[in-house]
Amino acid sequence: MRLLKFILINLFFFGLLKAPGLFLGKPIPASIVSMYMFFIVITVLLVMTITDKGAKGLFAPIAALVEDPSKALIRNIVFVIVPVVAAFVVYMQSNDAFAPPVELRSAHPAPPAMVKAYGKTFDLATLENPYRRLAKEGPVAFSALVREGGEVYFKNCVFCHGPKLDGRGHYANALDPLPMPFSGNDTIAQLQESYVFWRVVKGGPGLPREGGPSISSMPSWEASLTEEEVWKVILFIYDYTGNTPRSWK
């Protein structure tokens, strides 16, 4: 029965590692799960084989299955099942060959210190949204700017980033990596406006090497939007999602 216990304990930990994916929608990557499970199985095995008695109890059913003449029927069944399971696993894995390969990608790579755009050089460390101060000084003018930013958004960005700004626009499913959602608190809420400015203006082509493989399909908007329009649309995406830009002050 120690064998059963061994299997159950491992299954328990396996379930624990799978739970975030099943119930919370945040799966632990398969690469990590297999690594974790490899060491969990070994540790459990070690703990259960410290004494000779324990080791014997654990391996006795297996030994009996192979050696005991009275278990010939079960043995034959097991000896059929095991290769079939192995074949099934191999089949499933070769099916996966159609999936795109696993890759390393940094979603928010470190920005350069300076960005050249619109014939100027912007210092990202000190760059601020010129309209941001209006939020306090002139709320009416500010909301007009936000509205204008919204217009820019729905003429240019909506197709990928979606009408709800959740990164699920019409084209989204054709793209890999997915367009960034702006809702939620883990994308633009973590970034300064200067960073967002850099990403909008330079897009996928302007990603540094650590952001690679640079397959982001975000266009570089430098040619089609003016500097003012970029700042306005940034106001809009923060305003609509209820986020505030990160600031170090």
């Binding site: 470190a110 920005p111 350069p112 210190a113 300076m114 050089t121 210092d123 990202l124 460390a125």
Partner: peptide
């Protein structure tokens, strides 16, 4: 130069100005 003279590294003064 950009290995150290960046805001991300913080090891050396920034050189924009």
């Amino acid at each position: 130069c950009s290995l150290c003279h960046t805001a991300a590294a913080g090891r050396a003064p920034l050189l924009e100005r």
